[in-house]
Amino acid sequence: MDEQGAAAEPSHPGRHQTSVKPVQVLLEEASQLKTEGNTLYREKSIRSAISRYHRALLVLRSLDSDVMSSLKGFGPEIPVLTPEQEALLRNTQVDCYNNLAACLLQRQSVDYTRVRDYSLRVLQWQPRNVKALYRAGVATLEIGDTQAAKQYLIKALREQPNDANVKKHLQRAEERLKLELQKEKAMYRGMFSSGLKDSSREGINQTNEASEGV
């Protein structure tokens, strides 16, 4: 192919479409996908809602400096966003990750690790986000890290003191911590008691040996 043909190739329709779309168009596309996801979630079409949220996040990847900075030099330049566009980007990402976590919690078999991971992504950008704190707490409690779960739920309760669900799961975490402490104490008592018995047996044996010697 000659140089003229090579130069003309990128202008063919259907090629590199996403790389040449204006920033605002991509942001609006992601926002629309998120809105469709919300509608599907309300209609209980959980799988379709999850698909929309994932697609929205995929559209936003090329605009996210946190994601693209690690790929610098291997693809198109990261576009410069205005403060308003940056805010829309983050808010859409936050909503999508929060809503993905909500979708997963609606499934019959819940992947609590993914719920926690999605919630923690939100908390990187918005440390006081109540929904993310609550879902991180619930997921972490189910995974088995009760102390960490309690901390997330305490923070959620500070932000929303009257939330009944937060209070309920915080109470669950505190009750579980009490049980874990009781089991730990019982285990140590058992170890201590076993040690005393062993010491007592050794003392009896030594006494018997001394008596036989006399």
Rank of each mutant, 00 (worst) to 15 (best):
R47A: 15
L105E: 07
E29N: 09
L63H: 02
V138C: 03
S211W: 12
G213L: 12
E28P: 02
N208D: 13
R128V: 10
Q126C: 08
C96I: 11
V115N: 00
V166F: 01
R107T: 13
L33I: 04
A186I: 08
R201T: 05
V59L: 05
R114V: 06
R52E: 11
G213Y: 14
D95V: 07
V67K: 05
E84H: 08
P13K: 06
Y112Q: 04
M1P: 09
K72D: 08
Q17C: 09
A87Q: 09
I78F: 00
V94S: 03
H12M: 13
K72A: 12
Q32A: 15
M191L: 15
R42D: 04
A49S: 10
F74Q: 13
S65R: 12
L157P: 03
Q171H: 09
H12K: 15
A49N: 01
Q4K: 12
E86H: 06
D198F: 15
G137V: 01
T82K: 06
E77W: 04
A101F: 00
S194K: 13
M1R: 09
Q206C: 10
E77C: 06
N205H: 09
Q147K: 11
G5T: 07
R176K: 15
I50D: 04
G195Y: 12
L58Q: 12
E3P: 00
E212C: 03
Y118Q: 03
A8F: 07
V59P: 04
S65C: 09
L63G: 02
K21V: 03
Q93G: 05
R116K: 13
Q171W: 08
D117K: 07
G73C: 01
L196H: 04
E209D: 11
L170D: 01
V110A: 11
R172V: 09
N208V: 14
S70F: 14
C96N: 07
K155T: 08
L196F: 07
T207M: 15
D111L: 06
F192P: 03
T35G: 10
L179T: 07
E180P: 00
